[in-house]
Nucleic acid binder design. Structure first.
Ligand SMILES: [Mn+2]
Ligand SMILES: [Mn+2]
Ligand SMILES: [Zn+2]
Ligand SMILES: [Zn+2]
Lengths: 138, 138
DNA sequence: TCAATAAATGCACTTCCATTGCATAGATAT
DNA sequence: ATATCTATGCAATGGAAGTGCATTTATTGA
């Protein structure tokens, strides 16, 4: 059982107060968050710092970015065993049209998608939209 | 064989010079276009008019919007038999990382995606990224 | 320990695209 | 013809992403 400090070090980034806080914030959340969400959670910190922290996390495959079609980038922690470093992880994402939250369905992998001859598939973004379990009333 | 005028009328929108021009522009294109693309093609027209024309087309299910992950909305004409009015049409989109073009793969329908209990799937956005047929050298 | 070096943070500013309010021009209907 | 509705144009706004540079903080190694 690694501490967060050890984990960050294993990813070759320095441990700072801000990074620990943001990591913990993401770990507590069950949903993908926007930069604004983080901003609201840490009003004393500068937006740029939060932005660059997230970008650093993304580079080091600590978080992955999610484009859920709302036009605003969201981020979620990579799961253990996630191979974002190598390729986009192939789990799908669910966006709730009611509560506007986006969650990783890490257990649900994206099926193999066929493309026409001549096309080369490198990665796939799949977002399912609808009503989440909380909003559908079970 | 309907004329474009008749087609627009059948969608309950007025036929104007601008709308005819934009419709023809979209019809000629084999790829999804951005608002800027349209702007460049019609420099004399105001950006807002082009914007609202596209939005009107979208409401009337003449075009569909495509989020290909570039952060810029793209649009393409709906095919005959496309049922965008009822639900998002389930064909997939391909974005070329080389030439940056996005095309509708209308023949390639999105497979049924399973979601966990309690979740209700209403529609699905699926974008495959990679190298297109032109760029891969067949 | 202390100076040199590198990295992280904060502030200001920019860019890009989407969107809206309001005034005017144009088309339709009675 | 006049009233009414729609489309267009112009100006402005807002949100989010991204960058340059100065300053603070951490790390290195002499
Ligand atoms: Mn995810
Ligand atoms: Mn399409
Ligand atoms: Zn919900
Ligand atoms: Zn290409």
């Amino acid at each position: 059982m690694k501490t967060i400090e050890q984990f960050l070090e294993s990813k070759n980034i320095r441990v700072t107060a801000m990074r620990l806080l943001i990591y913990k914030f993401l770990a507590e959340k069950q949903v993908a968050v926007t930069l604004s969400d983080i901003e609201n959670a840490f009003e004393k910190a500068d937006r740029t710092t939060l932005y660059r922290t997230i970008k650093t996390f993304e580079e080091k495959a600590i978080v992955h970015q999610i484009d859920d079609g709302t036009g605003i980038n969201k981020y979620a922690l990579c799961e253990k065993g996630c191979n974002c470093e190598i390729e986009t992880d192939l789990h799908l994402h669910f966006h709730c049209n009611n509560c506007n939250e986006t969650i990783c369905l890490t257990e649900h992998k994206i099926p193999q998608i066929k493309v026409p001859d001549g096309f080369v598939s490198e990665n796939v973004n799949l977002v399912v939209k609808g009503v989440c379990d909380k909003c559908s009333g079970q």
